[in-house]
């Protein structure tokens, strides 16, 4: 049916106002829930780096369970600058590493999370951030008290190929990193290489790549190398 221009104009204005109001209302009401979910997801990723929280999916109240686990294991967290000096008064949990990585390397701040294991050992958990084949990959690397030996690793991705690159978020891939070392005996930074079958292995510094997921595997390798390099001043200041 044909209506006058005034009618069309009024009709579209009313429609837009009504829709916008409804959506704004929904967004405001649901925001706390969404933020809680994001917070839980981040806490869970940090816990996964020290091999905790894998049973969170079966908990009655996931948010409460993750909060409890996080408070139990992550005993301290702080923020440090590129020179490796700690910045008091900043909340490590609030730092968005993907945003920090976009700034100039001198303007960044980095978070680190301290975990007290069941046996009393202290672990440092550092975030890592990089790129895979299809999009960003990220994760957390846990180091032992010597700030050299890896005690756990967790990776996740946005959209790597299912069955191939996407395998980086499986536990068999992540468990390979345990007991690998970032530095050699001469205390120079080697990082951990992700190598294909035909490449010669480095006992302390390499893990197996995912067959068919070479680009993603190499993405993990450079993610660790690039991110951990940023933390070298901090590591040097605190140990070694």
């Amino acid at each position: 049916m044909n209506k006058s221009n005034t009618y069309i104009f009024i009709y579209s204005t009313v429609l837009v106002v009504v829709v916008a109001a409804l959506l704004a209302l929904a967004a405001t009401v649901l925001k706390p829930f969404q933020q809680k979910n994001l917070e839980t997801a981040k806490k869970l990723e940090i816990l996964h780096a020290v091999d905790k929280g894998w049973d969170a999916g079966s908990a009655d109240n996931k948010n409460l369970y993750v909060d409890a686990q996080y408070n139990q294991y992550i005993t301290r967290a702080f923020v440090f600058d590129p020179a490796g000096d700690t910045l008091p008064g900043r909340l490590a949990f609030e730092i968005d590493v993907s945003l920090e990585m976009k700034k100039d390397s001198t303007d960044r701040v980095y978070p680190v999370f301290l975990c007290t294991r069941d046996d009393g050992a202290l672990n440092y958990i550092f975030p890592v951030q990089g790129k895979g084949l299809w999009g960003p990959i990220w994760g957390y690397i846990a180091l032992g008290e010597d700030l050299n030996t890896i005690t756990g690793a967790f990776f996740d991705h946005q959209g790597e190929t299912p069955g191939l690159g996407a395998e980086i978020n499986t536990r068999w891939f992540q468990k390979q990193f345990v007991n690998k070392k970032l530095f050699d005996e001469a205390v120079s930074f080697i990082s951990v290489k992700v190598l294909k079958n035909n490449e010669p292995k480095l006992p302390d510094h390499s893990v197996d790549a995912i067959s068919g997921g070479t680009i993603t595997s190499k993405g993990v390798e450079s993610t660790i190398a690039v991110s951990m390099k940023n933390y070298l001043p901090f590591i040097k200041k605190n140990k070694l």
Binding site: M1, N2, K3, Y7, I8, Y11, S12, L15, V16, V19, L22, L23
Partner: peptide, 17 residues
Amino acid sequence: SIPARIRIIVQLVVVAA
């Protein structure tokens, strides 16, 4: 009540919302 000329846009707005 939907004006024919902006029919598609109205549908899209409702769906998108």
